[in-house]
Design a protein around this nucleic acid. Structure first.
Length: 490
RNA sequence: GUGGUUUUAGCUCAGUUGGUUAGAGCACCUGAUUGUGGUUCAGGGGGUCGUGGGUUCGAGCCCCAUAUUCCACCCCA
């Protein structure tokens, strides 16, 4: 049989012992903060029905869904369609009943019914609707699981990556926004990451669109406006023009540097959040933009409730438009301020209508997400992992021996150490040639700090020759002393 | 989805205008050293040059296709 060359699927990675150790450190840090704020765990399946996933993430998102081929004879329905029997073809792009007239998107409806989850929020909304009678609202849940996107991999972008989400559904209160920002603050402070939280409100964006008379093509307009800090005023104006947004009714405003005021000017001219929001509000009042004013008052309330230490990391970005199409209120985005990763390491917002799609209207939700893999990349680049998690093995002591007799002599001591809560192991094989050198090599490779060497003489004296592998010091001590050496507090 | 880039030993990478048997460092194994590692010295094993085609007397090098890596755009964690 020909051997095949082992390889990973595109955009996926293995995590060796060291990586897992460090990823768990991040996960544990996040989870403990989630718990402290009263969130409860949830896990959902890797795959969902495509009907659950499709249409929730916009057209771009639909393209990035990983679709699962139906099991069994997955061409069966397609053949039936070809034979034009019982399938309703009215909603399909091709109603000719001819397979060759179908495009891939239409054909996929016949051969794929399930997909891998794209995020954790939509499966959560699905769960809430299905379990509405058993859930006590407001429901606070956290969820830490992998998600999949059929994206082209690049820096900070993978096809399989983990999200750590905390969401509250069934509560309109802006206290939730405040608490979620506090969670961000606590987690990133604990991990030692320099960050800033960019905040905005979807209603402010809608107010801005109204201000420029562009609310008829809201998201398109906002996506262009959002690029202001990237491509500048001229770039935005050109893109708006190319997209046909500029007309006689708004040419004057867009042409004026007032557009620049929003991004380039507003933070300089108005140094505090309060003054920025006030200025924004007066613009909205000029236009009678009720929704814009509403967004301003929501943000004002959130900022008012936020404690000082937290607030210094918050930055108002009135053009921040996160892609997910389901946000209706607050919008949050986290970026690391040091390191080379420019894209966000977390994000979130409020969504009022997500459960409505599944038949449970009037339940408002708000949530945040941590991007585990990007957080890992930032911490790795900036060397932020503590030394204790940089070790692959947690073993403290390796018992080294020369033959069967001395190996057996180690076993009772090994058990005593483990019973005392100390991670310890015995080298499993008996080595005839240079046994100690081999076993010390093993301990070094695994960064094990102590070696307990048992030879003929040690066995007779009921002791071990305990070697500190960092300093090279050796002492002859018994099991009890060995325990105290490793953990003086027992 | 668009554009560019990468792939040669376990790892990181050299490899001249196409020309004998494809190299280095690290790692690994053996010995100097039969109870002591991270230092030194000597020796050793290991590669269908991503894969499949093509051009050529001859291909790691040129051409085509494909996979993959990384990067930018789009979009996003």
């Amino acid at each position: 049989m020909a051997t095949q060359k082992p390889a990973l699927a595109k955009g996926t990675r293995d995590f060796g012992p060291k990586e897992v150790q460090k990823r768990k450190y991040i996960l544990n840090s996040i989870e403990s903060v989630f718990k402290k704020f009263g969130f409860m765990p949830l896990e959902t399946p890797a795959m969902e029905n495509l009907a659950t996933l499709e249409g929730k993430y916009g057209d771009e998102g639909d393209k990035l869904l990983f679709r699962i081929l139906n099991s069994g004879d997955y061409l069966k329905d397609l053949k039936e369609f070809q034979n034009n029997t019982s399938i309703d073809t009215t909603n399909l792009p091709s109603s000719t009943g001819n397979v060759s007239d179908l495009d891939s998107k239409a054909a996929s409806k016949f051969i794929s019914e399930k997909g891998l989850r794209y995020d954790l929020t939509v499966p959560f909304a699905r769960y809430v609707v299905m379990n509405r009678n058993d859930i006590t609202f407001p429901f606070k849940r956290y969820q830490m699981q992998p998600v999949w996107r059929a994206d082209r991999p690049q820096k900070g972008r993978y096809r399989e990556f983990w999200q750590c989400d905390a969401d509250v559904v069934g509560s309109d209160s802006l206290i939730n926004e405040v608490e979620l920002i506090q969670i961000y603050y606590e987690v990133f402070t604990t991990l030692g990451i320099d960050f800033k939280i960019r905040v905005n409100n979807r209603k402010i964006l809608e107010g801005i669109a109204e201000y420029f008379n562009c609310n008829h093509r809201f998201s398109e307009f906002i996506i262009i406006i959002d690029k202001l800090d990237k491509i500048g005023y001229e770039g935005v104006f050109k893109e708006l023009n190319d997209a046909g947004f500029i007309n006689d009714s708004n040419r004057a405003i867009l042409d004026s540097p007032e557009l620049g005021l929003f991004k380039e000017g507003i933070q300089q001219i108005y140094p505090t959040f309060e003054s920025q929001l006030k200025r924004l509000n007066s613009l909205f009042e000029d236009r009678n933009s009720e929704i814009g004013s509403h967004g301003v008052s929501e943000l004002e309330k959130v900022l008012k409730l936020l404690d000082k230490s937290c607030k210094q990391f918050v930055e108002l970005d009135i053009f921040l438009a996160r892609g997910l199409s389901y946000y209706t209120g607050s919008i949050l985005e986290i970026v690391a301020t040091k390191g080379t990763l420019k894209s966000s390491i977390g994000g979130g917002g409020r969504y009022d209508n997500l459960t409505g799609i599944f038949g449970l209207p009037n339940v408002s939700g708000v949530g945040i997400s941590f991007g585990l893999d990007r957080i890992y990349d930032v911490m790795e680049e900036l060397n932020l992992f503590p030394n204790t998690v940089n070790r692959a093995s947690s073993t403290q002591v390796l018992f080294c021996h020369f033959d069967e007799a001395t190996q057996e002599y180690c076993l009772p001591a090994l058990k005593v150490l483990r019973d005392a809560g100390i991670a310890a192991e015995v080298y499993p094989d008996v080595i005839r040639k240079k046994p100690i050198a081999k076993q010390l090599d093993y301990a070094n490779a695994l960064n094990i700090p102590y070696a307990a060497i048992a030879g003929e003489t040690e066995m007779q004296q009921h002791v071990f020759n305990v070697k500190n592998l960092q300093t090279g010091e050796q002492t002859l001590i018994g099991t009890e002393e060995l325990i105290r050496l490793i953990n003086p507090f027992i």
